[in-house]
């Protein structure tokens, strides 16, 4: 497997838990410096895949290279180049935010200044607070702080914004864009379409343990080339709709036919959500 320029290279990855096949032949590549979203419904195999890449879980079959190493056997020097934000939030009880981040910084060879990291994730005012007293969103920020304190080349984010309010999600996205802008390679899992669309260079849709498609958000499911739907209301026949690759021509035609405005006119392309639901519906 040629892994030049690839932060993550996966081929034929499989993993079962007893009779249940969680990951069923996943192929995936993440180029260095790229942001890739692994998008899929709950139980699609996102976390199993990512945790195999992180070195937490063993695999039944397949080739896996993460930063040039096999996660199943890679050591401390390899882990120093990774940042991991797990799906579940860690709890540190009575320790303060500054203490926890400071401690983790001490575990990495090239760590960032802990106070800077705390400020960067928006917890500057909470540095002295005990982690037990943080809100859900603040705990998640702490998770991210621990994920980035070691200056990772590759950052894994497993459903990072689940449970965030819209405002917090926007702020979080800015943080991720900042990291990506600075050259960090990012692989995130999410079941939010808008998150994948907002952050990812490419989206890998996973359903029932298989990658259904990998594409830029705008190209997903042939969306860019999909026919537009023109809908209007005919005074005599009621609601009408037609799929076409030349919507402008159709609208001009209709405008001529109705002598000006077309009643109830809409022109739409399938949304990412439509495309996504069709894709996971086809295999689920």
């Amino acid at each position: 497997m040629n892994t030049d320029g690839l932060a993550v290279a996966v081929r034929g990855l499989r993993r079962s838990y007893g009779d249940r096949v969680a990951v069923d032949g996943v192929d995936l590549q993440v180029r260095t410096g790229e942001v890739v979203a692994l998008l899929g419904p709950n139980g699609a195999g996102k976390t199993t895949t990512v945790e195999i890449l992180e070195g937490y879980r063993r695999r039944d079959a397949g080739q896996v290279r993460v930063l040039g190493a096999d996660p199943a056997t890679a050591g401390a020097a390899w882990r120093a180049r990774l940042g991991i934000v797990l799906q579940s939030t860690g709890e540190f009880d009575d320790l303060t935010v500054a203490e926890v981040v400071g401690h983790f910084a001490g575990l990495y060879p090239r760590a960032q200044d802990p106070a800077e990291v705390v400020a960067r994730v928006g917890l500057a005012d909470s540095g002295r607070r005990r982690t037990r007293t943080l809100s859900g969103g603040q705990k998640r920020r702490l998770d991210v702080a621990l994920g980035i304190v070691g200056r990772p080349e590759l950052l894994f984010l497993d459903e990072p914004t689940t449970g965030f309010d819209p405002q917090a999600r926007r702020e979080f996205w800015e943080l991720i864009r900042g990291l990506a802008g600075a050259g960090t390679t990012i692989l995130l899992t999410t079941h939010y379409l808008d998150e994948a669309e907002a952050l990812a260079d490419r989206v890998a849709v996973i359903a029932a343990g298989r990658i259904v498609e990998v594409a830029a958000p705008a190209d997903l499911g042939g969306r860019r080339d999909a026919p537009a739907v023109v809908a209007w209301r005919d005074p005599a026949e009621g609601a009408r709709r037609r799929e076409t690759h030349t919507p402008a021509a159709l609208v001009a035609e209709l405008a001529a036919a109705y002598g000006g405005e077309v009643p109830g006119l809409t022109v739409s392309r399938p949304s990412l959500e439509d495309t996504y639901l069709r894709m996971i519906g086809a295999t689920a």
């Binding site: 992180e54 579940s88 860690g90 540190f92 990495y108």
Partner: peptide, 14 residues
């Protein structure tokens, strides 16, 4: 159970 161990295991800490 709280994931503290898992989190530490993800760092370069021996």
């Amino acid at each position: 159970e709280r994931g503290v161990l898992k989190r530490l295991r993800g760092t370069p800490m021996p």
